[in-house]
Structure formats: C-alpha cells, structure tokens
Amino acid sequence: MRLSARVDYALRAVTELASVTSTGAGRGRPVTADQIARAQEIPPKFLESILLQMRRGGIVQAQRGPEGGYWLARPAEEISLAEVIRVIDGPLAHIRGQRPEQLGYHGAARALQDVWIALRASERQILELVTVADVAQGTLPEQVTKLVADPRAWT
C-alpha cells in the first residue's frame, strides 16, 4: 500500500483537529490552518488545499474571520481513516487506475484479480475499523495492535 503525501497530511491534520478540539483549552474552538501546519509540520499552502478538499468531503467544517478555523464535521469516533483516504485519493485500491473488479485478466494471470480484491478487503478491514479518535487517543483496536506486535510487520 502506498499513501500519497496528501493522504498522510490529511490524516495527520484530522488527528490534530481531534486532539486539539476535544481536550484542554482548545475544546470546542476552531483551529487555524497555521496551528495545524505548525503542530504537524505540514507545508501551510499544501494544507489549505487539503482542508478545502476535506471540507467539500464533509470531514471538516470551517469558519472565516478572526475567530475562524477548522473543526471536525462529526465526532472523531465516527470518522474512519478509510473515509479520509477516499475523500483525498478516491477508492482504496486501484490497479492501473481501475478498481480491481473492473480488471480483465486472462490465462495464467486470472487469479491476480482475486489477489487485488483480497488486498483491498484487507486494507478496508483495518482502515474502516480505525477511527480518527483511535489515532488521536493512541488507543488502536486490538486487531491492529496484534498486527503491529508481529515483528514481520516491521520489515
């Protein structure tokens, strides 16, 4: 699985929003793009376009003005990592720009389609399970922590 810089930045930005707006002094207050950019070391102009895309995708909301900024459109517990990735990059698995079920393999390579579909199902299983709140709180689901505990996962 390869994630674009846009997806990485988007996931870091929503995690920062979840963390800042749900706890402490920032609770319930909009967070500026500049605050997010500094906290997560994301280029500000790049972040602005990502936040706009996530606003259009219904993940964040925004308010302009001196008291303006961004906040999650729904509770962090209701936003999966898969949803953020789809808003930024589209479907989870693409092979040559197509969904796996649209591919037409023949002969000896026919089973590759099943491999791509299984890979997408595996990705989906994890990415739909993990929410922005899980990441922000550092409490990942047991299924994920078991996978991470396997030394083979790190190589």
Rank of each mutant, 00 (worst) to 15 (best):
E83C: 01
I88N: 04
L51C: 03
I59W: 00
R86K: 10
V115Q: 11
V132Y: 02
E78D: 13
H94W: 07
L127H: 02
E83R: 02
M54I: 09
L103P: 00
E123W: 07
R110C: 15
P43L: 09
I117E: 08
S49D: 15
R124F: 07
R110F: 12
G65H: 07
I95N: 07
R86I: 05
Q113I: 07
A93P: 01
V60M: 04
A109D: 14
A37V: 06
I79R: 00
G107F: 03
A118S: 09
Q63D: 11
A109C: 10
G65F: 06
E83F: 00
E83P: 01
R86P: 03
M54D: 00
I88K: 03
S80I: 06
V87S: 01
G65L: 07
A109V: 13
R96L: 10
G65W: 05
L52T: 12
V84M: 02
D89E: 12
Q113V: 08
I79K: 01
Q102H: 11
P75G: 13
A62E: 11
E128R: 05
E48H: 11
P100W: 01
G97D: 06
I117C: 08
L52R: 15
L129Y: 10
E41T: 14
H94M: 13
Q61L: 13
E48N: 12
D114P: 00
R55D: 08
Q61N: 11
P66G: 08
G68T: 08
I117Q: 10
I88E: 02
R64T: 12
F46W: 12
R38P: 07
S80R: 07
I59A: 02
M54N: 00
P66L: 08
A73N: 08
L52Q: 14
L127V: 03
G107I: 06
Q40W: 03
L81C: 07
E128P: 02
D134T: 03
L72N: 01
L129K: 10
D89W: 05
A133E: 02
I36L: 08
E83W: 00
R86M: 09
L127K: 06
A39W: 06
S80M: 04
I88P: 01
W116S: 04
G69P: 01
M54C: 08
G104S: 14
A73Q: 08
P91C: 05
Q40C: 13
L103G: 06
A108L: 15
G107M: 06
L81D: 06
A111M: 14
G69V: 01
A76K: 00
R96Y: 08
Q98H: 11
L103R: 07
S49Q: 14
R86W: 07
R99L: 12
Q113G: 09
A109N: 14
S49N: 15
R124L: 11
I50Q: 02
P44I: 06
